[in-house]
């Protein structure tokens, strides 16, 4: 039986920026990877612009800057498998699951509030 007071996950990282434009996405992902490398249960929620981080077909920048696509492809190796996207943002950008690099679960606002509630530590980037 699940104890209502005890969060299910250790760390939820909320990513709200797209790739390349700022380092928020990369530095947020770094926090998630470090958490997982230290044996924590980590989940990712892509909100707003952050859903664009999951688009297929991303490349490096003009100066060869790596971008975050390759990091996302490594998530499974770090056992980060709980991936969520904000339904409202997917709609706003006209995206479907098939447009994304990775398998995600699409959440409405109520489900987002519940997910945030279920994690011991939530970091927003």
């Amino acid at each position: 039986m699940r104890d209502e007071q005890t969060p299910d996950g250790d760390l939820l990282v909320i990513l709200r920026h797209g790739p390349h434009g700022t380092s928020w996405l990369r530095e947020g992902l770094d926090a998630a990877l470090v958490g997982a490398a230290f044996g924590r249960e980590v989940a990712l929620l892509f909100m707003g612009e952050g859903v664009l981080a999951l688009l297929e077909g991303q490349g490096p920048g003009a100066l060869g800057q790596k971008g975050t696509g390759p990091t996302l492809e490594m998530l499974e190796m770090y056992d980060i498998e709980a991936l969520y996207v904000e339904g409202r943002a997917m709609e706003r950008y006209g995206l479907e699951q098939q447009d994304l690099l990775l398998e995600t679960r699409c959440l409405d606002a109520a489900a987002i509030a519940e997910l945030v509630d279920r994690n011991a530590l939530v970091l927003t980037f």
Partner: peptide
């Protein structure tokens, strides 16, 4: 109960909207 802290104006981006959608009752 959680405390959500917003430092962005309602007119600047989606911080307010995102905070509200992550809040429980």
């Amino acid at each position: 109960m959680k405390l959500h802290i917003v430092n962005r104006a309602p007119d600047a981006g989606r911080a307010v909207e995102q905070a509200l959608s992550a809040m429980t009752a």
